[in-house]
Design a protein around this nucleic acid. Structure first.
Lengths: 222, 222
DNA sequence: GAAATAGTGTCTTTGAGACAATATGTT
DNA sequence: AACATATTGTCTCAAAGACACTATTTC
């Protein structure tokens, strides 16, 4: 029969801070690694969680107060070596939110750190975050994924900056707009953005309602 | 504390039969669903498996006698509803092999069935296979993945047929060859293929040694 | 040499990127 | 009006697909 296996869910909650892809960490309440910052996570509760996605939503909600618009299973990290308590399995999800959502959550112990500036984290959380970032980088090339990092309304130049932060490279303005047009997930809002200075203000857009929770893909990448 | 959670690994072992993407099923030795065909799978053995990949290799080897050249984690399927024994977690891997490998394995109870002809399988194995097929379809567009479905030596027209079977659509010959050239994972073998009839025979190729176990990606898809 | 498929050359079309002209706000 | 950025038009270049021509084998 089976040895006891630790079954947990961890969430890589990503956002953009100062145009940099950043991850949300939380001070651990319990051992091991008590008081250290790590990915939000917790045990699966077989009594109350119908599946892993439920568990992820419950844990994220409990620990951070956030209900993300986009949550996707990343990968499962498991083995004898990753947790001092024993053989463990962590089903990892990743979520994207606008940074205001994290600020608004007002939860204690949350630390948002740029993924390029991370120190050594408990467990294999550095590997997990690296995998999440790689997934997002890749997916941003051919999908509407980065839109979830924007607030409810945004401008096209602003969205381009978000895409560029995800991809780590600058994009051609004309091509980017052609691709956004092709994605067909945005709709203009009547109002206009604040002009940051003495120049033409940009049109505000929002995600079409039907794409609030659903990714749209490009046939060819950016 | 934690209720007992069933921790298993399942493998979607895919191959090509008569140019059709097919999955390998195995008659179940134990309840539930004893004697029914299902995906090869088994419990994680915390004592002997260092991680999930180890478990997948062990299970695949034990149940089918196959050591696949390519094995990748697909996704974890978990929840209360998928297994009559209780809350279960299955980390699913997928593997690709040439059909001769399955024939050569000589294991009893193996059933190879085209993924489009499947009947209703135990657990959520139909969903799992569908997810694997979707992943392979997608990945075949921009990688050397389908090469693992070919034998040790193959012709370019033959490989194109394999790609077409994976993608479910026919491809442009010139473009396909340009892309294979770009992938740069193949090397010609001095010999030549059997001519199937009265016509020019095709050059035989094989995977370069360094790509025997490693995928190569295209910057843009096929 | 007729047939049939392998392999290659090249033209056409499509789409990405560069560049620049125009638009529209603020100061 | 000057300025600065938004937005759009258009040209150039690269890549994908269509087509057809050449190559090479068997019968």
């Amino acid at each position: 029969m089976q040895q006891s296996i630790i079954a947990t869910v961890d969430i890589v909650l990503l956002t953009l801070q100062q145009q940099r892809l950043s991850v949300t960490l939380i001070k651990r309440d319990n051992p091991p690694f008590q008081t250290m910052a790590a990915l939000p996570g917790g045990y699966i509760h077989a009594q109350e969680d119908n599946n892993c996605l439920d568990a992820a939503l419950r844990i994220l909600s409990t620990k951070t107060g956030i209900v993300p618009p986009y949550l996707e299973q990343l990968q499962t990290f498991a083995g004898i070596a990753r947790d001092p308590r024993g053989w463990s399995m962590s089903v990892v999800y990743f979520a994207l939110v606008a940074s205001e959502v994290i600020t608004a959550a007002q939860h204690d112990g949350l630390v948002v750190c740029a993924v390029d500036d991370l120190w050594h984290l408990p467990f294999d959380h550095n590997d997990i975050i690296a995998a999440a970032v790689a997934r997002i980088r890749n997916k941003s090339y051919y999908s509407s994924l980065p839109c979830y990092l924007a607030g409810p309304m945004f401008t096209l130049p602003g969205l381009q900056k978000i895409y560029e932060a995800c991809l780590g490279e600058s994009l051609n303005k004309v091509s980017f707009r052609r691709k956004m047009d092709e994605l067909n997930v945005l709709e203009p809002v009547s109002g206009q953005t604040e002009a940051h200075g003495a120049h033409r203000p940009a049109q505000l857009y929002r995600l079409k309602a039907q794409f609030k929770n659903q990714l749209q893909l490009l046939s060819r990448g950016l």
